[in-house]
């Protein structure tokens, strides 16, 4: 039940209204960074204050909330944010992607394809994709205004020059609806293709930077690349050692002091569902699939 000391979902109604206006504007101009009056939240910056504010502004008492951090429902950040909303909004929570109406995420898009009616809220540390090459905010805003995105390719050029390939593996820049270049937050580039044509509403909140941007359902989202170095959504070249999936994003886990390692799905719900359906991996406690 909602702790009576708080308004529903922690934020006061005026603040939620202000954030919803920013969200609507962001959805109307896909990929554009909308400034908003980011509030102090009862958690430090970097712990998802932007995502939490967006989630708070979206939640209704009927919603079912899922929170993931690096794909997992059981990490500190995910657990504390889930408990925060259980306490302040009293909404139902779930670990199942298919059952959730609102999913707040840090650094992943669930493996299970999303559906219409679902909202995916991203936690964003630095929303400005041009920031690392152009430190002046006045200049980056001008560059967005005039679609001067050559600099974004300079970053990819530097990658290839130094590493022989585009080594940017996460926060890989995309162009939304042929207009704004956007930082998709630090998701692995493996997830980039899921940004495009997604039936769910994708909202991005950056608390410290006080910016909100969005990708409406079924948007055209293209990862930047060179003709002779095309974008490739890469992952570790293994199968999940627990569920045997060959097509999901994997975490590498060191299991002892001798460097023995295992690869497991970073999306814990996806992995558990597969195991429940009887899929087995190399190191499954019940043994490999026959």
């Amino acid at each position: 039940m909602t702790d009576q000391a708080y308004n529903f979902a922690y934020l006061d109604e005026q603040t939620k209204r202000m954030i919803r206006r920013a969200l609507l504007k962001a959805l109307a101009i896909p990929g554009y960074q909308v400034p908003f009056a980011s509030r102090e939240m009862p958690m430090p910056y970097g712990w998802g204050t932007g995502g939490v504010q967006v989630t708070a502004a979206c939640l209704t008492p009927e919603d079912r909330l899922k929170v993931i951090d690096q794909g997992a429902d059981d990490t500190t950040n995910a657990v504390s944010i889930r408990r925060f909303f259980q306490r302040t909004a009293g909404v139902e929570t779930t670990e199942r992607t298919t059952d959730a109406t609102v999913i707040q995420t840090r650094h992943r898009i669930p493996e299970q394809p999303l559906a219409e009616g679902q909202i995916l809220v991203y936690q964003v540390p630095i929303p400005e994709p041009l920031r690392f090459l152009e430190p002046r905010e006045t200049e980056t805003r001008k560059m967005h205004e005039l679609e001067e995105y050559g600099l974004m390719h300079v970053k990819l050029y530097e990658d290839i020059a130094r590493h022989g390939e585009i080594a940017t593996a996460y926060a890989y820049p995309v162009r939304v609806e042929g207009r704004y270049v956007m930082d998709p937050s630090p998701i692995p580039k493996f997830d980039n293709p899921k940004l495009a044509g997604n039936p769910a509403i994708q909202l991005f909140g950056a608390g410290r930077e006080a910016r909100i941007h969005a990708v409406p359902p079924y948007s055209d989202v293209v990862s930047l690349d060179f003709e002779d170095h095309p974008f490739a959504a890469s992952k570790a070249d293994h199968e999940c050692d627990l569920c045997g999936s060959a097509g999901s994003y994997l975490d590498e886990v060191i299991t002892d002091d001798r460097g023995t390692r295992m690869f497991v799905c970073s999306d814990t719900d996806f992995c558990a569902s597969r195991q429940a359906q009887g899929h087995r991996g190399r190191l499954s406690p019940q043994g490999a699939t026959p």
Binding site: G150, L151, H153, V154, Y157, F226, E227
Partner: peptide
């Protein structure tokens, strides 16, 4: 400057 005017071949 090349990339700024649209060059996309590394």
């Amino acid at each position: 400057r090349l990339m700024a005017v649209g060059a996309r071949n590394y």
